[in-house]
Nucleic acid binder design. Sequence first.
DNA 1: CAGATTATTTGTCGATCGATAAAAAATGGA
DNA 2: TCCATTTTTTATCGATCGACAAATAATCTG
Lengths: 201, 201
Amino acid sequence: MAGRPREFDRDQALEKAQDAFWTRGYEGTSMADLVSTLGIASARIYAAFGSKEDLFREAVGLYEANEGGFATRALAQEPTARRVIERMLREAVETYTRPGRPQGCMVVSAATNCAVENDRLLEWLAEHRRARTVSIVERLNEAVRDGELKPDTDARALGDYYAALLHGLSVQARDGVPKERLHDLVTVAMQALDARRAERS
Amino acid sequence: MAGRPREFDRDQALEKAQDAFWTRGYEGTSMADLVSTLGIASARIYAAFGSKEDLFREAVGLYEANEGGFATRALAQEPTARRVIERMLREAVETYTRPGRPQGCMVVSAATNCAVENDRLLEWLAEHRRARTVSIVERLNEAVRDGELKPDTDARALGDYYAALLHGLSVQARDGVPKERLHDLVTVAMQALDARRAERS
DNA sequence: CAGATTATTTGTCGATCGATAAAAAATGGA
DNA sequence: TCCATTTTTTATCGATCGACAAATAATCTG
């Protein structure tokens, strides 16, 4: 273990790359943009991160481990499906509209339209979105088994519904719809779940 | 009025451009792509349509006048807000998942992440989405005034809710969620409106 | 100190981006 | 028939794309 020590903070550079990709997407952020945003020469970026694509994947990982991890956190920490869903949506609204931060969801908007040669990235993000949908559906199925929701509840339809809403929230946030209106919209959306709650003793 | 007659079908070329932009987005579709898709040299494209951006705007216009015009059509043709909303969502699902056609909504996905120099296009599409939201909210407000919906209904929240869902449906369709599941999800979403319907004599 | 290792600097690579100039070809009108 | 007009053909433009090679500099080990 030797060699010249790195002169820049790799984690800090990764954060800056995350924000750039989150704001403008993968193809919307050029290497020249990254050079000026990170403040280091392109050869240093390649030495530290491998390629633009590698950097992007690492940036998405950082996003999902922090700001974008609200779904995972809600699923892990909330005791009921009702609370999982509401917390997930409320935190999504907050994250998507945070002042001074990139708007919307990085996983939804960073690679939606891109050239053929980057289809792998597009598919990679799509798989992340589908996985999130699956985890929501599974949690709702669990709630049906537990008796939290009525036995005849269509958990998949309900899960698809909240997943679609989550993705729609991202588009709305990017369009500049204010946080308060998004919260009001979530309130409307929670009725679908409340209508399926079982009467408990 | 003279000059050499055009040798290709302009409308047909515009349709092909629409499909290309719809599939891969504005920046994801290069001039080289357009040349091979339309089957004509780039100089001819510029002569007929002005620029890549002009061609894109014209292609979006074509989309909104046909496949993408379901919201306008539903608003103009259906007698009740209930029927407007359901027809709009059902037709959206059909349009977004049509076999052999580009998936999702062109207005939602053709310019979500792009470079700084194309921010005008991004903002232009965002304005289209916001305008659609406004027209939905206005229709729901009208329904409250008409007595179709309960007097204490928050029409804006409800309109924002259906707009968000519409945008989410586009993302889901692009992710390959099958049509049937999207219809089931729409069924769940219709409950929010039904809960606001007034009891009529 | 010398040698191995890693980072930084500097310059540049071939490919592709959107766009156009100039010349040739095909029409209608006088 | 000849001219004005428009399209097509052909070739190419400068800018930018992502990526890297080679030389230099800074560290640890022995």
